[in-house]
């Protein structure tokens, strides 16, 4: 199960990086979202997947789910959600002001 999750995370990373390398700002935003999903799945897989076990360690219970990765993912999801929404708004504004959403045309060294 962990192997499948790791492969899935890798796929998400691949597609994310591919989208990140595109020219359109919206595609780039989607790419970052995919990469963060990949990273979150990866944390989950790294904690070890044990289905059906409680996240509690009491004497006598041998099989238990590690609760820490879930706490880490939750924190990370909230952060990446916030940053992604900020990125979308910023990308929209930047394309309005600069008159293009093509990242190739957003290079340059002119200063106001």
């Amino acid at each position: 199960m962990e192997i499948i999750m790791a492969i899935l995370a890798g796929l998400l990373f691949t597609t994310g990086v591919y989208n990140l390398l595109q020219k359109q700002l919206l595609r780039i935003a989607i790419g970052t979202a995919l990469i963060s999903h990949g990273a979150h799945l990866f944390i989950l897989a790294m904690g070890g997947l044990k289905g059906g076990a409680p996240p509690i360690l009491v004497e006598g219970i041998e099989q238990y789910t590690d609760p820490l990765p879930q706490a880490l993912i939750l924190t990370s999801i909230v952060i990446s959600f916030g940053v992604t929404s900020f990125l979308v708004v910023l990308a929209y504004r930047a394309s309005e002001v600069n008159g293009t959403d093509n990242i190739e045309e957003l290079r340059g060294n002119d200063y106001e």
């Binding site: 990140l20 700002l25 780039i28 970052t32 990469i35 963060s36 990949g38 990273a39 979150h40 990866f42 944390i43 790294m46 904690g47 820490l68 990765p69 880490l72 990370s76 952060i79 990446s80 940053v83 900020f86 990125l87 910023l90 990308a91 504004r93 930047a94 002001v97 600069n98 990242i103 957003l106 340059g108």
Partner: peptide, 27 residues
């Protein structure tokens, strides 16, 4: 606006790598 997009994207990407590195360490 032009430069802050790049700044944000780069930091976002390296933050995600940070999370991945933490996951590796945790494993």
């Amino acid at each position: 606006l032009r430069e802050s997009i790049k700044y944000l994207l780069l930091n976002l990407f390296s933050s995600m790598l940070f999370v991945t590195a933490i996951a590796f360490i945790y494993a």
